[in-house]
Design a protein around this nucleic acid. Structure first.
Length: 432
RNA sequence: UCCCGAGUAGCUCAGGUGGUAGAGCAGGUGACUGUUAAUCACCCUGUCGGGGGUUCGAGUCCCUCCUCGGGAGCCA
């Protein structure tokens, strides 16, 4: 009787007979020796079938195999330098669990992006995608660890909301007698309410933006992590951000070396990511950009090109802080040192990955935030409960939102965030 | 929404100046006792994105629509 094992555990079974279940990725034969390469989500295993060492019916089963046939194979685990992973299986039995027709779409070769996205349900089986998803999972677990260690409470905020949040596009759906409900673009406003109840909180959930964006940095559905901290000012906020981002990067570098190697990520660019991150005031950034030949004027929001010009001088993420209030959301606190600006910051990742965090100290003055809501012509009645937070025991507080897929893309060094979520939702893609 | 680029075999692509479509991979058959996206021989594969136009003749030139990619804006 053989024990069963997953491929990455086989080293512990050297010399023993083991059963492995997985799917065929490659088949090779040279007459009387055949190789079946399997994957099981933990690794790749080469198995060897020798004609005169197995019963005829087992040998003949090789001819029935196709790519992605699901198998249970049994054999002796042997260390062999010629096998990927260092171990191979000398087969004594091959059992077919599920057959696979010849027209399986993903081949061991280059494919185009559109084709791969149409076949995302199969694309996920490939080694590169497995590596990305394991790193995504590592980052998700590290996020929870980081906040748990700091005694933050995780708060789950609603996905169906009344019109509230950011200015950009909303997805709507009918909601009984209440008119339209909108898919949440942010959990922040609920996070602020929770910060007054629990002190330090974070949200971790999906958010939705009906923006007609077609770039490598945008999804219509993405996951966002939004801490909110009572009694934290904008400087506390940035310190939390740089500690947080550094923690995530170092966790992946420590625990996911194999996956980073699979992705051919240059680890030296990650190893030195640590606090503090450079802080650049918006006003200074504009001056720097003008010196570099940009046409930005004070008051403009910074474009993608401007951001790239600023990041290129640094080997770690940078903060751009205190933007003009016209360029930013209504809930950001006015800067007492320069009332044209607000106490906010973006965090830009290096190597061209751009904005991964937007954060701010929140406006805690009732009259000022009401004034801003009216200035922006936002639906005042939808914000009644949010305004009430400033009426009953208002408190200084700050928070930020980190885009999970953008962070995964940067740490993995992949070009497009569509590879950083299992089933991406984009402007023209709703399936699979 | 705007600006570029692309759409040819199941997949990845090549097809100067218009003359009736081709390569690799995949697939099929066979050979091979250590292969690594195995190798070798032979075989199969097409609504050239849709529609319209110019022409004796259009994958190729013109118009139009659709789809995809990249970027901008917006943002995380």
């Amino acid at each position: 009787m053989s024990d069963s094992a997953r491929i990455n555990e086989l080293g512990a079974h050297a010399g023993a007979s083991v059963t492995v279940r997985g799917w065929v990725t490659h088949l090779r034969s040279s007459g009387k020796v055949a190789f079946i390469v399997l994957r099981d989500g933990t690794g790749i295993l080469q198995t060897v079938l020798v004609k005169n060492q197995v019963p005829p019916d087992v040998w003949e089963r090789f001819a029935e195999l196709t790519q992605e046939t699901c198998l249970a194979v049994t054999g002796e685990v042997k260390a062999d330098a010629r096998a990927p992973g260092g171990y191979e299986l000398g087969l004594t039995n091959v059992e077919i669990i599920g057959t696979s027709p010849l027209d399986y779409p993903i081949q061991p070769k280059e494919h185009g992006v559109d084709f791969l996205l149409d076949n995302r349900h199969f694309w996920l089986r490939t080694p590169r995608q497995v590596a990305i998803m394991r790193i995504r999972n590592e980052i998700e677990m590290a996020i929870h660890d980081f906040f748990y260690q700091r005694d933050f409470l995780r708060v789950d905020t609603p996905i169906l909301t009344a019109a509230i949040g950011e200015r950009s596009g909303l997805f709507s759906t009918e909601y009984f007698e209440e008119g339209n409900a909108y898919l949440a673009q942010t959990g922040q406003l609920y996070g602020e309410a929770a910060a007054a109840a629990f002190g330090k909180i974070y949200t971790f959930g999906p958010t939705f933006r009906a923006e007609k964006s077609k770039t490598r940095r945008h999804l219509t559905e993405f996951w966002m992590i939004e801490p909110e901290v009572a009694f934290a000012d904008t400087h506390d906020n940035m310190r939390l951000q740089e500690d947080f981002v550094s923690f995530l990067v170092q966790r992946v570098v420590e625990r996911r070396k194999d996956e980073l190697k699979e992705l051919e990520r240059d680890i030296t660019k990650l190893e030195h990511i640590s606090a503090p991150f450079p802080r650049i005031d918006y006003t200074d950034a504009v001056a720097t950009l003008q010196k570099k030949g940009s046409s930005v004027q004070w008051g403009d929001d910074l474009g993608a090109e401007d951001e790239a010009l600023l990041v290129e001088d640094y080997d770690r993420p940078i903060f751009i802080m205190n933007y003009p209030k016209e360029a930013k959301a209504f809930y950001m606190k006015e800067n007492p040192d320069d009332p044209r600006t607000v106490l906010c910051n973006d965090c830009l990742a290096p190597e061209g990955y751009g904005e991964i965090i937007g954060g701010s100290q929140r406006e805690d003055d009732y009259d000022k935030i009401l004034h801003r809501i009216r200035e922006e012509k936002l639906p005042e009645d939808a914000y009644d409960w949010y305004l009430a937070l400033r009426k009953y025991g208002t408190f200084p507080h700050s928070g930020f939102g980190l885009g999970l897929e953008r962070t995964v893309a940067w740490i993995c060094g992949v070009q497009h965030i569509r590879e950083c979520i299992p089933f991406p939702r984009m402007m023209h893609r709703l399936r699979p």
